[in-house]
Design a binder for these strands. Sequence first.
DNA 1: TATGAATGAGTGTTCATTCAT
DNA 2: AATGAATGAACACTCATTCAT
Lengths: 192, 192, 192, 192
Amino acid sequence: MKKKDMNKQTIIQDAVAEIILAEGAVSVSTTKVAKLAHIAQSNVYLYFKDKQALLDSVYQRERNRIINTTDIAELRNHDIDIETRIRYYIEQVYDYSLANPDSMNLIQQIKFLMGEDDGLVINDSPNNIVHELLQEAIDNQVIKKLPINLHMGMVFSTIHQHTNNIGDQQYPESEYKFEDIYQFIWDAMRIH
Amino acid sequence: MKKKDMNKQTIIQDAVAEIILAEGAVSVSTTKVAKLAHIAQSNVYLYFKDKQALLDSVYQRERNRIINTTDIAELRNHDIDIETRIRYYIEQVYDYSLANPDSMNLIQQIKFLMGEDDGLVINDSPNNIVHELLQEAIDNQVIKKLPINLHMGMVFSTIHQHTNNIGDQQYPESEYKFEDIYQFIWDAMRIH
Amino acid sequence: MKKKDMNKQTIIQDAVAEIILAEGAVSVSTTKVAKLAHIAQSNVYLYFKDKQALLDSVYQRERNRIINTTDIAELRNHDIDIETRIRYYIEQVYDYSLANPDSMNLIQQIKFLMGEDDGLVINDSPNNIVHELLQEAIDNQVIKKLPINLHMGMVFSTIHQHTNNIGDQQYPESEYKFEDIYQFIWDAMRIH
Amino acid sequence: MKKKDMNKQTIIQDAVAEIILAEGAVSVSTTKVAKLAHIAQSNVYLYFKDKQALLDSVYQRERNRIINTTDIAELRNHDIDIETRIRYYIEQVYDYSLANPDSMNLIQQIKFLMGEDDGLVINDSPNNIVHELLQEAIDNQVIKKLPINLHMGMVFSTIHQHTNNIGDQQYPESEYKFEDIYQFIWDAMRIH
DNA sequence: TATGAATGAGTGTTCATTCAT
DNA sequence: AATGAATGAACACTCATTCAT
């Protein structure tokens, strides 16, 4: 049993994630979580201050997964052409989203539950790098002078929609190449 | 009091809308609705079969507002250049969204609560016309051969994000013209 | 439409009876009754003081049906042999029960709801005649010296059970003759 | 306090039984049960899945009481004369009913609430033995060839009525001996 | 670390009844 | 005579959270 090695924290977080993906974030309750994690209900409060903290932690775990999976450092590498760096960024979001379709859904669900309405656009330090990158691109007149969250939101929502389409088996992954999606996004962003 | 003229149905729906916009769809409860509408809780069930029906009705009311506000018929007018029709469609979404920023948020919130994950993309008859339009555009090689919900999702999410930015006073409405937003969207869609 | 001739009282009572037979007396509510009778809920109170009065009236209606259907007078006819009169009484209960199986169930259901636990044994004036008859039979040492409600309860419960068995299609009505049932009952009552 | 030793399950079940006997099964509500058991209403759900499960458990508890109190095994002992075995069976029902008058009422009330209309005749394994016994008696022409539930219903309803009469203080227990009741029942069943 | 027991506040929903029209 | 609107009380059930052990 793999589960034996995991610590309880992780088991609980997994339960939360499972419920969110199956029934939506609204349906998460300590009762259900405990049942799914095979622990006592009160036990949840041993590992998490309250339900909010629990959801936060699941959210953060997913954020970290992204950060650890993707290579942000390169985005700051000014030796690389800015257009290339943006493409690299989009590619990473694309790869991550296809490899971890649930991850994006989790983040979206939790953000929605918490009442944040900027969709998948996340404002934390790793994303600040992206923010800087896009700001730089705007300043250098590489991409359109529009609010940065419009640029980012478009990247996320497009890729996420595409990933969900595949998950819903609307078409096979092979139907569209990265290049197709990238062209769509990049055409929007760039100055023609 | 304006409210005196309205019938109770409307008053209740307004209460629901108010709560959704202030606290999110998750927070809607018959208790709160009744309190805000200044009626007894049980009274809600005089006008709506159950909570689901209540939410549905609020959703439909918003849908109808869109349908009645926008001019779908023209989108089918084959005398008009297809590119112009798409531009016209985007313009309508843009105008509606700016004029009724809450409307989009209501729809989004209710859809989320009901567990539909295609965001603001709506699959009902008026939207089928849009669907047809975009399909025609794909067939005529006017826009990129990509899933239609990618095209539509992009229209909605971009405009909605922009509208929310204005609502959050991140910048004044005057900061960006329709043309700016349109260019962003259209560049993504069209074949270059 | 027959219903047009009936007065509302009757229509309402019919609705109550229908609900009781289909779902049990517990399920009777003014809401359901009104819906089934195609009248406004408040209208019920135009014809009946309250729910209790409504149920009482349905009960009484059934009682009267029995009284009007059966021939009690003969039971007091001392020109007739007492044993014959008892047989006649049992025969009448039997005939009525087979002809109106719902009637007995209605009475039973309503009595249950009202918390009277003497089953189908009814203590009102027409039954007092039966009571007298059986008392006379005890005094004359024709039937066993046992509480009269034991005698009566046995008559009712046996016949009612038999009727329900037929209703449940456990066996066809033809399977047992009145004589079979009568023998069972009479053997219990009489002194051997 | 005796109650301290009992576990909560039992306390709750007792509360249910008390309400049923005092006000009828219809009156059982989690609110009342909790109040009587001196616990919070929500606490009921700690011990019972739902109200149905609660009622079932009270029913089963009573069934088990009967099963554990009575001696069914002997009824199958073919070394004993069949007539004697039936008498033994009736005696056991009689003894149990007098010793536990509430028990029968509880069972009757719960069965009625659940919409089972075969009265006190119970179709579970211990009663199958009685069923077998009576079938055997019919086959051997010891008792009348009538539906078995007519035989059993008569045993139960007669004894139960008698017990209730005593409970209602219509007459003292001493007024009638078992032999009197038995004769009444047995005369009905047997072939003369 | 772990649990079961406990609870008050809240959920959606149904009910019998009243009243103005 | 008839209705629609209104309501407070009750219902079964779920929840997040606390606490003693």
